[in-house]
Amino acid sequence: MPRPPPGEAVSWIAYRFGGGLIVVWAAATIVFFAMRLIPGDPAEAILGGPGSQASDEALAHVRREYGLDDPILIQYGRQLIRLVTGELGMSYSLRESVSAVIGPLLLSTMVLALSSLLVGWLLAVFLTLYSTRGSRLSAVVGNALELTAASLPHFWLAVILIVTFSTGLGILPPVSTGTWSGLVLPTLTLGIPIAGFLAQVMRDAFLDALESPFALTSRSRGASPTRVRLVHALRHAAVPGVNLTAWAFGYLVSGAVVVETIFARPGVGRSLVKAVLDRDVPLVTGIVLVTALAYVIIMIVADGLTRVVDPRTGRRS
């Protein structure tokens, strides 16, 4: 398999890196102006919220100290400069460095998202192989399972899993316990719908691959049907699934907001909701930017895997 020229690889990395910077900048811009549209006074949030009964003098002092009385564009520019230098600021509500707050929360959410992605891929491969066995029954059952899995809402699936495995069977905890057992139900809640989406696109690609010239050539050379399916067809069927991985990761992180709340699991999802309600601008900005950066990294890795699995992609891009 010929390797791409070094210049082509550098151009590809530069292009993806530039696109990632635009995504991060757009996220920073959107969250900055969106937070300003939420009713309430940020200075009041800094002093403890509406219940703090802060005096007008204290509010005025905080606005001057944090630059909240400057024009909005000046605040925006100052915010971008801080982000470029890696300074996320101090959380209004927690009185801690945003970087220190996000670190453990991001790790928890990344563990949940990546474990869910792994489970989703394993289930998708199983559904793809099952639904393409050649019998009409397996095709109908596999298609029904894919559609059902893809359409399950997170909150409904979470309740069903809790009732079944926690209340009914009593084998898994209904909330996060900090151990692997507390990770199982949240992972299944996020991973099962993703498996439905991935299996739908992989099944069509798998069937096309079975009828392609390379599969017919492999059969003529004496390759067994199992080898053709697992070695040749499945590799090509994985390409559209890999292309969807970046989207799937974003879907998982957004779904973590609901799942972490239901299972009382610490993570950026629950913290983001609370930070928005508290008008904690630095914490909201930090969570959104770190999440956007993780999405960009996953997107670049997924594109790289696509080029490895299907070298024709590199020649087309």
Results as ranks from 00 to 15, higher is better:
86 G>W: 00
86 G>I: 08
87 E>Q: 14
88 L>P: 06
89 G>Q: 07
89 G>K: 00
89 G>M: 03
90 M>T: 14
92 Y>W: 07
92 Y>P: 04
94 L>Q: 11
96 E>V: 09
97 S>R: 11
98 V>W: 07
98 V>S: 02
98 V>C: 05
98 V>A: 01
99 S>F: 15
99 S>P: 11
101 V>P: 06
101 V>K: 02
101 V>G: 09
103 G>V: 12
103 G>D: 10
103 G>W: 13
103 G>T: 13
103 G>E: 13
103 G>A: 15
104 P>F: 08
105 L>M: 04
107 L>Q: 06
108 S>Q: 10
109 T>I: 11
109 T>Q: 06
109 T>L: 01
110 M>H: 10
110 M>W: 04
111 V>T: 15
112 L>Q: 02
113 A>C: 04
113 A>N: 07
114 L>K: 07
116 S>F: 04
116 S>L: 10
116 S>G: 13
116 S>E: 01
118 L>V: 11
118 L>W: 08
119 V>Q: 01
120 G>N: 11
120 G>E: 00
126 F>D: 03
126 F>V: 14
127 L>S: 03
127 L>E: 09
130 Y>L: 12
130 Y>G: 06
131 S>I: 04
133 R>S: 12
137 L>I: 15
137 L>G: 10
138 S>W: 08
140 V>I: 13
140 V>S: 06
142 G>Y: 02
143 N>E: 14
143 N>W: 14
144 A>K: 11
145 L>S: 05
145 L>N: 03
146 E>S: 14
146 E>V: 14
146 E>W: 01
147 L>H: 13
148 T>K: 14
149 A>I: 11
150 A>C: 06
150 A>P: 10
150 A>K: 09
150 A>W: 00
151 S>C: 10
152 L>C: 07
152 L>V: 00
153 P>C: 07
155 F>P: 12
156 W>V: 12
156 W>S: 13
157 L>C: 04
157 L>P: 01
157 L>K: 06
158 A>H: 11
159 V>E: 01
159 V>D: 13
159 V>W: 07
162 I>H: 01
162 I>P: 09
162 I>K: 03
163 V>W: 12
165 F>A: 05
165 F>R: 03
166 S>R: 05
166 S>H: 06
167 T>G: 14
170 G>H: 02
172 L>P: 04
173 P>M: 09
173 P>K: 00
173 P>S: 10
174 P>G: 08
174 P>K: 03
175 V>S: 15
175 V>W: 14
175 V>K: 13
176 S>F: 15
177 T>L: 06
179 T>Y: 15
179 T>I: 14
180 W>K: 11
181 S>T: 12
182 G>K: 08
184 V>F: 10
184 V>K: 11
184 V>M: 05
184 V>R: 03
185 L>M: 09
186 P>C: 05
187 T>M: 05
188 L>Q: 05
189 T>C: 03
189 T>V: 01
190 L>G: 02
190 L>M: 02
191 G>S: 03
196 G>A: 01
196 G>L: 00
196 G>T: 06
196 G>N: 09
198 L>K: 07
198 L>D: 08
199 A>R: 07
199 A>N: 09
200 Q>D: 11
201 V>I: 15
202 M>E: 03
202 M>C: 07
202 M>R: 00
